[in-house]
Design a protein around this nucleic acid. Sequence first.
DNA 1: CTTATTTAAGACAAATTTATCCTAAATAAA
DNA 2: TTTATTTAGGATAAATTTGTCTTAAATAAG
Lengths: 144, 144
Amino acid sequence: MFSKACEYGIKATIFIVLKSHEGKRVNPKEIAKEIDSPEAFTAKILQALVRHEVIVSVKGTYGGFEIDKDKISTIKLADAVRAIDGDSIFNGCGLGLKSCDEDHPCPVHDKFKDIRDALKNMLEQTSFEELAFNIKSGASFLKL
Amino acid sequence: MFSKACEYGIKATIFIVLKSHEGKRVNPKEIAKEIDSPEAFTAKILQALVRHEVIVSVKGTYGGFEIDKDKISTIKLADAVRAIDGDSIFNGCGLGLKSCDEDHPCPVHDKFKDIRDALKNMLEQTSFEELAFNIKSGASFLKL
DNA sequence: CTTATTTAAGACAAATTTATCCTAAATAAA
DNA sequence: TTTATTTAGGATAAATTTGTCTTAAATAAG
Ligand code: SF4
Ligand code: SF4
């Protein structure tokens, strides 16, 4: 479904939201430990999230990654997915014809479109704040 | 979503269904041309479909790949997907935790489960015969 | 039985994704 | 300003997926 990079990116963003709520910044080491991911690879993914303005980085002592407090509630799953995997999951799908449209669809188009749209809606409607809240309350987990 | 191999496998199976309806066998060359895929790689995928008993192979002169006529209507998208990509798409998902269950879910579990189940249902309910019929009627296409 | 034909299988190669490592650039503290 | 700290970026490596090629095995026709 998602690339490994995207999975790490989503988990990392949830953790950063969690920490940003407390007004704290986090570094790649801490993040990788928390989400059980390879540290250097995670750092690369964080760079991509910064470039796409999903998260913010601060260099130097006491630096790290964070999210603007008043922006936290606006970030959706789709933002992280788009930053890392692009939007192929939103428009490309099924049998991956080179140039497909409603008038020249692949055989699974009608069946597939509904699933793809449901996925798209879910990703665009689910906020990281909501996901982070469930971690905090112990309803869900970032590793194991 | 699906691997390239799985995409080719699905298209190939649709084409084989189409030909089997006419009582004809097809070889990898013909299949690859029809679905616009690399021939040798497609041959490998056909082997996997044979091993998983989705299609049947006949060696020697006038040999090729086919599907038992009375079995055609029973084959579902899920059969080909399982044969090639395994069942990770049916149970693994979301953030890919190592050992996840309802009691120890990842943060996206609740959101994700619905999509995954919808996908699973679609794959298990859609028959290749139905897809092949749409090709035949010109409602959908295998390439371009 | 012999031969031509076709799939099966395994070794190999290319491309992509995942992951690591080292150095540069930025920044804040002292 | 100097130094310590931290992210950014590029080179490299490992693993996986995608793709090719050659030979073996099976089978039907003649
Ligand atoms: S035709 Fe429809 S289902 Fe098939 S690849 Fe294009 S958008 Fe996806
Ligand atoms: S969505 Fe549910 S089943 Fe999928 S990885 Fe997360 S916890 Fe596991």
